[in-house]
Amino acid sequence: MKKTLIFLYTCLVLAAAAGLWFNRNGTYLAERSLWKLSREYDAIVNNTTGTPTQNYVFLLEKLDKFIRRYSPHRVVSVGYILRGRLLTVQGKYALARQEFDEALDMFAGQEALVVQLLLEEAQMYALAGDHQGVTDTYDRIISEHALTPHGMQGPLILAKYFVQKREAARAKEAYIAAIDHYRRLIEKYPDSQVEFQSRLLLAESFKFLEDWDKVLELHKETLLKFAAPEFWNRQSLLYVIQSINSATILRNKDFTTPVAIYSEFIQKYPNHPFNDDLTEYIRRIQYMEARTRETGAPVDASALEGAPVLEGAPAP
């Protein structure tokens, strides 16, 4: 029995050793190394008292070793991103760009990774204050990866970037370009998830240009055209309803239009899962209207904030 037990425990240890040895260059161990390097990276960038240059150099070397050891695993892309970020923090933008370009060559064809790397590159340009670099990188995301989530939102992100940088003229230009882009997508992919998303993003672009009629028209059309629940999640439905309410009730004290839109929806789709929530919205809007007329007080937006949780909509 003693010998059997010794044999069994030896097998257990040997199996563990063999498992680790055969997977020494595998994804899991690469992830483990990366996790440790990420923690070192966090410690450096979150150090508010100043990090000695030597620490940057050490971590850059470690990341380089990691990249060389585990290439061409997917996780290596994060190694490149961390190196690029470290170089960006140090103000070595040209070297950071080199890192991102090298990674882009290595992972060409893996769309999600490429988009992630391009976003990092755009972030690097933004920190360098290179507006043209940001624009070019986003243009690349928009043109080459148009249907990825970042590709879809790219035109809006770029416009918001210029707003943030107080470049009013370029921001307006970017919003107009975004509108053209989303209109093209709507034409190119009718009745699809792409059209649905493009409509929401188009409305968002019109919001910036304060063209509230267009916002309202788009949301009304979207709600009525894309009634199938698979298009929606809680966030998108709340966003559309709040946008409709803002464009009507809060801006013009117009209580009739939202009620008309929601009623039309309920009438058109009598057994729709959103109907209970929309009915509750109608009830609240009508109550708000009566209160506002009665007291003459300004519209209290908070009355709609505690509105239904939209349980009919799937979670995002």
Binding site: L12, L20, F22, N23, G26, Y28
Partner: peptide
């Protein structure tokens, strides 16, 4: 425990 630990490994 060993089997469960090695699930993500080949």
């Amino acid at each position: 425990l060993e089997v469960l630990y090695f699930i993500p490994f080949a």
